Amino acid sequence: MKYALLFSLAGGLLVSLPTSAQKLRKTATGSGLMEKGEKVGVWEYYATTRDGSQVITQKYDHSAGRLVFFRPFDDVLYPVRTPDGEWSRMRLTHPVFFVGGDPELATYTGRLSYPAAAEAKNVQGRVVVTITVDTLGRASNQQVLLGIGAGCDEEALRVARSIPDQWIPARVGSRAVVSKIDVPFTFRLAGR
């Protein structure tokens, strides 16, 4: 452990206190403190608007494991599982989020391997996978909502299932609820 030596002016006493090995880290998508390779404290996550300016989309306290701030979203109805196991659409305090927002999620959704069949047939487009996120932020029941075939649907599902459980569950008031999020995966051949 590292120690800092402090000198007390009043009594000339030397006191040693542990110092933190935290370092400030800034990326294109977020900034905050790192300690021993782990994110700690409140991190700010950013997105770029259409006009090119950078805005804070969420603040997440990695030490406490809770969302501190999120940029307001459209007031639409989202799918929520009711206590009897049925699905209903309702207004949420906030929908399912990925810690770090869309830019952080894109680091995972971009890990696609282009299927040989899709490349041979020049298949391109977007596959949308719906993911159920429980009240603890765990993902399950990944399903293709909109597919393009030629192996792309299966590849999008493979990648969706490999996304780490860094989900922030949807909330109605202060209560976490089971909800769904639709995640797009874009298949585009280079130079075409």
Rank of each mutant, 00 (worst) to 15 (best):
K36I: 02
G41R: 01
T27N: 09
R50M: 06
K39E: 08
R50K: 14
E44W: 08
T48H: 03
V42S: 06
Y46T: 07
L33C: 02
K36C: 01
D51P: 06
T27D: 03
E44C: 11
A47G: 05
M34R: 02
R50V: 03
T48W: 04
Y45V: 01
R25A: 10
S31C: 08
G52M: 07
S31L: 13
G41N: 01
L24S: 12
K36N: 15
S31P: 01
R25P: 00
K26N: 03
S31E: 15
Y45R: 01
T27E: 06
E35C: 08
M34I: 03
T27W: 03
A47Q: 03
T29H: 13
A47Y: 04
T49M: 15
Y45L: 02
G37R: 01
S31D: 06
Y46A: 07
T29S: 11
K26R: 14
S31V: 00
R25D: 09
K39A: 11
G41L: 06
D51E: 14
L24I: 08
L33A: 14
K23I: 12
K26E: 12
K39Y: 00
T29C: 11
D51T: 15
K23S: 15
M34Q: 00
M34P: 00
T29M: 12
K39M: 14
A47V: 00
R50I: 12
K36R: 15
E35V: 07
K23T: 14
G52K: 08
W43Y: 00
L24D: 12
G37F: 11
K23G: 12
G32D: 07
A47L: 00
Y46G: 11
T49N: 14
G32H: 11
W43H: 11
E38V: 03
V40T: 09
R25K: 11
T49K: 15
G52W: 06
A47F: 00
S31Y: 00
G30F: 04
T49C: 10
E35P: 05
E38I: 01
K26S: 12
R50G: 15
M34W: 04
A47R: 04
K39L: 03
W43C: 08
T48E: 14
K26H: 02
E35D: 15
E38M: 13
T48M: 10
E35I: 01
Y46H: 05
S53N: 15
S53C: 05
E35T: 14
G41F: 09
T49H: 03
D51Y: 07
G32A: 05
A47H: 04
V40L: 02
Y46R: 12
K36W: 00
S31T: 08
G41M: 04
T29V: 11
V42Y: 02
T29P: 01
A28T: 10
G30L: 08
K36V: 11
S53H: 14
K36P: 00
A28V: 09
T27V: 09
R25Q: 10
E35S: 10
G37N: 06
S31N: 08
E35Q: 11
S53Q: 15
S53P: 02
G32R: 05
